[in-house]
Amino acid sequence: MVIREHTAPGFNRPAENFGNHVISQKTMNEFYTIIDIRHNVTLQHPVALLRSDFEFCFDAVCVQRDTAVVTAVFGPAEVKPQRILIDKASVEALYRPKTGLPRVHDKMRETLIRNTCSTALLVTLHPRTSISIIVQEMQDSGGLLACAVNAACLALINSGIAMKFLVAAVSCMIDHEDNILIDPNSKQLKGSKASLTFVFDSIKKNIMACHTTGRFTQLQYEESLLKCRNGSDKIFSFYREIVRKVHQEHDRMSPTCRT
């Protein structure tokens, strides 16, 4: 079995190390998803994602600059009797931190991902089933929540589950000089007054979820919302690019895949 490696020039991220070891052994065609909202550069060699040998499991590796998250979607599958919903699928999100057991702030992320995804999914199409979204944190260099939401959406795209629309999350921060910075890294976040994460839908670009910390004025909130909404366009066009590449990949001959 030959594993194809797509390494973009200048793509020497710490995230790659674990990626090649842990994931390649499991997946045959492995790609990375790189989302860069501020620079268009990485979009030219976006190396997409997602599939595993696991029978019904779909993986997405989402690398947003130095932040990396691995997601899997399992379902529509059989559901435990206590979680059964007779008119729709029960959506659950499982968030695993890098080390240790999930804590309070992990549960918060879990809830946000679950609420966002259950709104985006056409849950009424699969009554009495469960759809699990498993999110494993790999590396946090700022904007982890946004990365997790985007990774969950990529995994849902790849699983082929029916959805009403896609979602995209963008994070931003306000520094002490009141400048708004889109998609900050952890170094920049140390000098922040407030940090905000917005989730948008793909049709009308409405807010689906919002998470904020710190103090800011209403004006600053509105301004950062506007900037993040503009940033989300890049993610949505990136999703379309990914799907196009995956379908081309399947249509094209790939001799390296021979086992």
Partner: peptide, 9 residues
Amino acid sequence: VDSHRKRYV
């Protein structure tokens, strides 16, 4: 829509 899904419905 031609899609690559693995779960059978």
